[in-house]
Design a protein around this nucleic acid. Structure first.
Lengths: 138, 138
DNA sequence: CCGGATCCAGTCCGATACTG
DNA sequence: CAGTATCGGACTGGATCCGG
């Protein structure tokens, strides 16, 4: 927690945290992607995984999406892709140094999901329930 | 920073961090959304903002997307929406207690974007450049 | 085993117009 | 001011087939 006074700061938007919205937006387009987060999280646990290993670990991911996600992560300098000239072919993925710096914020999100996921689900049910009442009234 | 040893843990996938991928996936569908992150970050700075205030602050957001984002955040119990029966009408938004707990992981991401955004951009240029060479060769 | 290529349905999102 | 409604284009993502 490097930043003091992060929560409930009364400062105007453009004071301490100077990252522009557009820069943040650009990063979120890659990082905010569901599969990217899950792949990076997996590689953070396992350092060096094969394609099909990742495919099994990530759960709902399709082959196509895993390929695309890995390409984008490689393009962004977050994962290394090493091809072994063998038969049958083998490809392994691992986080780069830059990719490992992403683990901390990702784990923060991951832990938040674990800690408050049920709160969100409960709030959602409450919201939907009160909306059903409005529909009945009409 | 509640968790010790978050980074570079060598533990197998299903050891310490037990949140399932599917639960994480569910949360990421809402939280991983670009606009949600930016709106929560703004409300973390400013506590209580009006609709058009947010619209101006968030930058590229369309009216429609801001509306939808705020509805979803309200539904998830992250944002309170209070309507003032006035003319002209006024609606104010603020983070709930649950929403404020989200600030920490969001700020972590935000700061990462500020610290490493240029690294990602550089990696992207390098990648694209090396791909152009391959095209020339063909 | 890895992943490129193609097709296609579903979804998202911006623009616009209209209401309380 | 703060939305809702509708439309149409763009993009996403899954399924499938094929190639190295």
């Amino acid at each position: 927690m490097p930043r003091p006074g992060s929560q409930t700061s009364l400062e105007p938007p453009s004071s301490g945290r100077s990252t522009t919205c557009t820069a943040m937006s650009d990063i979120l387009n890659r990082i905010g992607d569901k599969w990217s987060v899950m792949v990076v999280a997996q590689l953070g646990n396992n350092t060096r995984m094969r394609f099909s290993e990742l495919r099994r670990a990530v759960d709902g991911v399709s082959q196509r999406m895993l390929t695309l996600t890995l390409r984008n992560l490689e393009r962004d300098g977050l994962v290394n892709r090493t091809i072994f000239a063998e038969v049958p072919p083998r490809v392994e993925y691992e986080l780069t140094a830059l990719g490992e710096t992403l683990l901390e914020p990702i784990y923060a999100l991951w832990d938040w999901a674990g800690a408050h996921g049920n709160d969100v689900a409960a709030a959602r049910e409450r919201y939907d329930a009160s909306r059903e009442q409005e529909i009945e009234r009409a």
